[in-house]
């Protein structure tokens, strides 16, 4: 059986990618299973989707362990443990990461020895309004690695993206073609692995759940603002940066920030709590003096200590 996991953020199209790949497998006569998995978090938050494909009936369900291929829509997810990109990998698991870096650069950056491939995406025209068709690219690249045909990918695109305008469809096809081509040297690199036998699994460490009284065993929270422990900064792909020299301290960015992630430093300048800023960039749009710039997220999501965090009085 082939087992493929896609990791992305809500809104990056990884569910669609999994469905395109699922359909491509299906078109080539495989039994196929694809599904997305979301948590409580919404658009922008890490999510994953998965595909299984086999020549026999698939009985497995649910989350994929020991994936053959892991496709990552956004390299910043690798630094985020809660995204689970590196969870339950087997020795043979191959990573394919959407990134402008070369595989060697990325390995170095991430301090990783595991073999990986990178997929470069076209640069968007406008960061707000034009999003490259990541789903088609990731699915097509994965298909190439899995030895599927371009024809199946194209047909799958039409099945899964039937609601798109002709123009958008053409853009998706073009991106898929080029991603498929990019992976040409690695065609068929991901193969089916022998299944693990039942004897090799450890026995579950079942225990008898102890009884606890209602004060602590009901789903109640005795405390305040514990949500601050959540690093929603990890949702960001673009990061607002305040240029103090252009700032008039008008406070509008702070007023309109839906997350409450902007406060003031000792001089009354706004500063951003990067641990929680989700990167909506309302601040950037509302800033009358254009003192806020969007910079590509570099993975240092919550540098709350020195330097990156602009609040130096915490």
């Amino acid at each position: 059986m082939f087992r493929i996991r896609f990791h992305g953020r809500g809104g990056q199209g990884m569910k669609t990618a999994s469905r395109i790949l699922g359909s491509a497998f299906f078109l080539e006569g495989y039994e196929t299973q694809d599904a997305p998995r979301y948590g409580a978090e919404r658009r922008g938050a890490p999510m994953f989707a998965y595909v299984r494909a086999a020549k026999t009936t698939i009985f497995e369900r649910g989350i994929i362990l020991r994936p053959d291929l892991v496709v990552v829509a956004d390299e910043s997810l690798l630094l985020l443990q809660s995204a689970g990109v590196l969870a339950d990998l087997a020795e043979h698991s191959l990573l394919l990461i959407s990134s402008s870096h070369s595989p060697e650069e990325l390995q170095k950056k991430l301090g990783m020895v595991r073999p990986l491939l990178t997929l470069s995406m076209p640069v968007p025209k406008d960061i707000f309004t034009s999003h490259p068709p990541q789903s088609s690219a990731c699915a097509a690249a994965a298909a190439q690695l899995l030895g599927l045909s371009l024809q199946s990918v194209r047909q799958a695109l039409h099945m899964e993206l039937s609601g798109l305008s002709d123009e958008k469809m053409a853009e998706n096809e073009e991106t898929a073609n080029s991603a498929f081509l990019q992976m040409e040297p690695h065609r068929g690199r991901v193969g089916e692995q022998p299944e693990t036998g039942s004897v090799s699994e450890d026995r579950p460490s079942w225990i008898i759940l102890p009884f606890e009284d209602a004060r602590i065993s009901s789903p109640a929270i005795h405390g305040e603002a514990t949500s601050l422990l959540m690093d929603t900064g990890s949702w960001r792909s673009l990061k607002p940066f305040i240029h103090k020299e252009q700032c008039s301290r008008c406070d509008l960015c702070h007023t309109y920030c839906p997350e409450g992630a902007i406060s003031f430093d000792n001089d009354g300048y706004p500063c951003i709590d990067y641990k929680h800023c989700k990167g909506c960039l309302i601040c950037l749009v509302q800033c009358p003096l254009h003192a806020i710039e969007a910079v590509q997220e570099d993975g240092s999501f919550h540098n709350n200590k020195q330097g990156d965090d602009q609040c130096d009085n915490s």
Binding site: G39, A40, L209, F211, E212, S217, S218, P219, A220, I221, H222, G223, E224
Partner: peptide, 22 residues
């Protein structure tokens, strides 16, 4: 004593705990 009650519990593992305690 701030108290949030009836809070969502996500994931079958955590959910199992609360249901079995009941």
């Amino acid at each position: 004593d701030p108290l949030s009650q009836g809070v969502a519990v996500l994931g079958g593992s955590h959910y199992s705990y609360f249901r079995y305690e009941t």
